[in-house]
């Protein structure tokens, strides 16, 4: 809670930890933060309490004393993960920035390894693997780039079209970023998004973020299977993936190599439409209609020839599931029958 005074890069690292009703898991996260081999005198911790109704606030106050430099931002009403992280970015003064969700934790020394890597490689950001934890079950999830520990152009993480690449690995907490990305606004999440906030964020980062490197590090432990997790609820908040892709298409359209990347973005769009269409089967009809209308609007905005090519190359299941949300349906059906 002390202010080390004015001056650029007063801190080496700012760690932003948004939490909402994470009381059962917060002590684990905070304990792990103390075990990162960091110089606590040069690390700034920013805890964002996003409208929690449990003991989160008390826990944060109690633990704050164990860190040298802490800022606690409390929101009376929840603003969501995206804006929560943005508030953290506004308060961050470190030369580098990292994120951690309040219900996850880090392996010992992880942040020190990332910090050393991003400094010595001089890249704009770094990415790392993570471990998915469900109870006692653990699964290693690798960042989809096999060339490691060397600087690569961030754009190299986007293609090929039909394989999982770094833009399909959008986790904010799986890496570390130089503050120049925050200064240009690249690190900001789209405001007001309750879900899917990381998709346009990762696309912008890889299109315009300069250089990156994928690092081997002890890892982030990402907790899955939480019963009140947002991803298991079916309501309007789940529809944010539609404007999220709207933003992705916007940023790709502005790019010099848009033809290359549009194919990839469209393929991802169809994939997520298929997945969400199945999930929204059981939703009330008003929600389904909203889904349909909004998705159709996005599909309408895409170059028709390219969309048609990708659609015709998709599997039968995918074509059937997304046909409702495509423009020029009569022409498509003719093409499929021919």
């Amino acid at each position: 809670m002390t202010d080390p005074g004015a001056g650029s890069a007063a801190f080496d690292l700012s760690v932003i930890v948004p939490s909402k009703n994470c009381a059962p898991y917060l002590p684990t996260a905070l304990t792990s933060l103390l075990d990162q081999d960091l110089d606590l005198g040069r690390t700034q911790f920013i805890f964002v309490n996003d409208g929690s109704t449990d003991d989160t606030a008390e826990l944060l106050d109690e633990w704050a004393t164990r860190f040298d430099h802490v800022e606690i931002i409390s929101n009376g009403t929840a603003v969501g993960l995206a804006d929560g992280r943005n508030l953290g970015l506004d308060a961050a003064r470190g030369e580098h920035i990292a994120f951690l969700d309040g219900d996850d934790w880090l392996a010992p020394g992880h942040l020190a390894v990332l910090l050393e890597a991003i400094r010595s490689l001089g890249t704009d950001f770094v990415r790392c693997d993570h471990i998915r934890v469900t109870g006692k079950r653990r699964e290693l999830r690798r960042a989809p780039m096999a060339v490691r520990n060397v600087p690569i152009p961030a754009r190299a993480g986007i293609l090929p079209v039909d394989q999982t690449t770094l833009v399909d690995y959008p986790f904010a907490w799986a890496g570390m970023f130089h503050r120049r990305l925050a200064d240009t606004g690249l690190l900001r999440f789209p405001s007001g998004f309750m879900t899917a906030e990381d998709r346009p964020w990762i696309w912008d980062l890889h299109l315009n973020g300069g250089t990156c490197a994928v690092i081997d590090s002890p890892g982030v432990c990402y907790r899955r299977g939480l019963s009140d997790s947002l991803s298991q609820v079916l309501d309007e908040r789940q529809l944010y993936f539609i404007p999220a892709f709207g933003k992705i298409f916007d940023v790709v359209r502005r790019d010099a190599d848009r033809d290359l990347f549009l194919l990839k973005a469209i393929r991802n769009w169809l994939a997520i439409l298929e997945h969400q269409a199945k999930r929204f089967d059981t939703a009330p009809w008003q929600l389904r209609r909203q889904f349909s209308t909004e998705a159709q609007a996005i599909s309408d905005s895409l170059p028709w020839e390219v969309l048609k090519t990708v659609l015709l190359e998709s599997s039968r299941d995918r074509r059937t599931a997304v046909l409702q949300m495509m423009p020029h349906r009569a022409e498509l059906i003719q093409e499929l029958i021919r």
């Binding site: 392996a107 010992p108 992880h110 390894v113 890597a117 010595s120 490689l121 081997d216 590090s217 002890p218």
Partner: peptide
């Protein structure tokens, strides 16, 4: 060319450390 310094290998990182 690879110019990364040797980084400490963590107890359970998959590789022995960056190149």
């Amino acid at each position: 060319q690879q110019t990364t310094p040797h980084l400490p290998s963590a107890p359970y990182s998959s590789a022995a450390g960056p190149a």
